[in-house]
Design a protein around this nucleic acid. Structure first.
Length: 512
DNA sequence: GATATGCTTAAATAG
DNA sequence: CTATTTCCAGCATATC
């Protein structure tokens, strides 16, 4: 009986795939359609997570958890493709209702086609576009920076290129350190009074449905916009200051068909936002063009996304089983690929003091520090390996670049320091989040003193790097869920966004 | 080694 | 208010 039902399900799926065939033909993967049948048989044999067999949704498609080969850690070779195609199709609505126009295609689509909010998203587009333009000739910055901008512009190949050199960044850093500018890729540094941080009720909002996987504060002092990516492939934007009685200031899009693993807002061009996903895609949301572009596509899941602080033309991401790739966004292909770990890589980060130094963390149980200038193609050798006893969820460099903090399921936050990160110390911290809460990832604040990491009591533990212990815990009666993913505002000291598994964002702030 | 299965966990939401 | 549902982690254990 169950077999019968699944057979029916298979039939419908095959129909869907037929419908997608034209699209697939252009992608030159249609020749592998013949392999689908076999893939389905495997999938049928595979049981989804313990579902009570009695309750079946009547006359609905059975809810089968789509687990592609890649999420099961299998090689991305031939037989996995069937899953990919399924994930490209629109999520089935009711059998007889006309299919919603779906952007789930392997290509660019308009923002409005991915928009899932109730009102209009015009206000968001306006806010981001206006600020983005302001940022390229920011009035809050003195003439000095405009000179740098000119300097930067003079080195461009064309108008759509935002490259700038190492030396330029160095000059920027020397001159602008500590200044409040509208937009630069250098983080402000400073100390924060932990006791003064608070979570105000107006700084709480549900930005997406379901579990948040990635959160990012826009790198601007002119506005407060926070982007959150969830498990379903949604990306929500919260324009915090625009909230009033009529508007919630929240805008929801659906650019991906699987969990969103990374969000990058371009510091010099706030209207350009990269997103990565388990669906194997990297997209570029261009708010001015009002499109979600396709930058990169893979058969493997993409688990994290990063960028060097001095190169806006390249993105780095981790893919499948332990691979990091670099992609030139102007060309759209990967120009480098390294196999660095045996298992999925949960984070990729770059050192602010030396953009060639990269850190990775892996489910394999290790974190690595790498020098991109010395990467052997076959077997890259790490400058430093951190060994944990369980999976490592993150490895992030401190604001100065002198330290590295890794977070692991083995209940440690490891702290590396020293000229070659040779000094390692462990700070105990309960990181057992269980199944429903995204893993904790300790993030740096605005100097090398403190690290912020969620706890299971709905608070934020602050680890002191000198005392190697929890020195403070941010708590609030307004926090109704566990904040598990964080982003510290790069230019506003004390502004820390925490994201929950229920789609909420908490913004802790320092008094102004 | 590959594969399956069971257990942990919190919060939205259905009732 | 309680009962149910979620189910793309990660780990331990059992079986082949």
């Amino acid at each position: 009986m169950a077999t019968e039902k699944l057979t029916e399900y298979e039939r419908r799926r095959l129909e869907t795939i037929k419908r997608n065939e034209e699209m697939l033909v252009s992608l030159k993967i249609h020749t592998r359609l013949s392999e689908l049948s076999a893939a389905f048989k495997r999938q049928r044999a595979e049981k989804s997570y313990k579902v009570s067999p009695e309750k079946k949704p009547k006359s609905e498609e059975p809810v089968v958890i789509r687990r592609s080969l890649r999420t099961r850690g299998l090689p991305p070779d031939a037989p996995g493709l069937g899953d990919e195609i399924i994930e490209l199709r629109a999520k089935p609505s009711k059998p007889n209702s006309p299919p919603k126009p779906s952007p789930h295609v392997l290509g660019p689509f308009r923002m409005r086609d991915a928009y899932r909010g109730s009102g209009s998203d015009e206000a968001l587009i306006k806010t981001i576009s206006r600020r983005s333009q302001v940022n390229s000739s920011d009035e809050s910055v003195n003439g000095q920076e405009n000179d740098y901008k000119d300097q930067i512009s003079s080195g461009l190949h064309d108008g759509s290129d935002w490259s700038y050199s190492n030396s330029t960044v160095r000059v920027l850093e020397d001159n602008l350190l500590g200044c409040s500018t509208g937009c630069e890729s250098i983080r402000v540094k400073g100390s924060v009074d932990l006791g003064s941080l608070s979570l105000e009720p107006e700084n709480i909002a549900r930005v997406v449905p379901g579990r948040i996987m990635a959160v990012r504060i826009f790198p601007s002092t002119e506005m407060t916009i926070i982007a959150a990516g969830n498990k379903f492939g949604d990306v929500g934007f919260w324009d915090v200051e625009s909230r009033n009685e009529d508007r919630d200031g929240i805008y929801l899009y659906h650019p991906h068909t699987a969990p969103v693993s990374g969000i990058l807002v371009q510091p010099f061009s706030l209207s350009k936002i990269y997103t990565s996903s388990y669906d194997g895609l990297v997209r570029l949301m261009d708010v001015e063009k009002e499109v979600f572009d396709l930058i990169y596509s893979s058969n493997d899941a993409i688990f994290s996304l990063s960028q060097q602080p001095n190169d806006a033309n390249s993105i780095y991401f981790s893919e499948g089983n332990g691979v990091v790739k670099m992609c030139d966004v102007r060309v759209g292909n990967t120009s480098a690929s390294w196999n660095l770990h045996e298992n999925r890589i949960n984070s990729v980060d770059f050192n602010s003091a030396n953009a060639s130094i990269m850190a990775t963390s892996s489910t394999e149980g290790t974190a690595g520090v790498w020098d991109l200038r010395k990467m052997h193609v076959d077997k890259p050798k790490a400058l430093k390996m951190v060994c944990h006893r369980r999976s490592v969820q993150s490895a992030y460099f401190s604001p100065s670049g002198n330290c590295l903090a890794t977070t692991s399921f083995d209940n440690n936050v490891a702290l590396l320091s020293g000229a070659n990160f040779e000094d390692i110390s462990m700070i105990r911290h309960d990181n057992q989040t269980g199944r429903w809460i995204s893993s904790f990832r300790a993030v740096w604040g605005w100097n090398d003193s403190y690290i912020y990491v969620g706890n299971m009591k709905r608070g934020v533990d602050v680890l002191c790097t000198t005392q190697k212990r929890i020195i403070f815990t941010l708590q609030s009666q307004h926090a109704s869920a566990i904040p598990c993913r964080f982003d510290a505002h790069p230019h506003k000291i004390g502004m820390l966004a925490g994201a929950t598994s229920g789609g909420q964002i908490y913004i802790w702030t320092a008094p102004s």
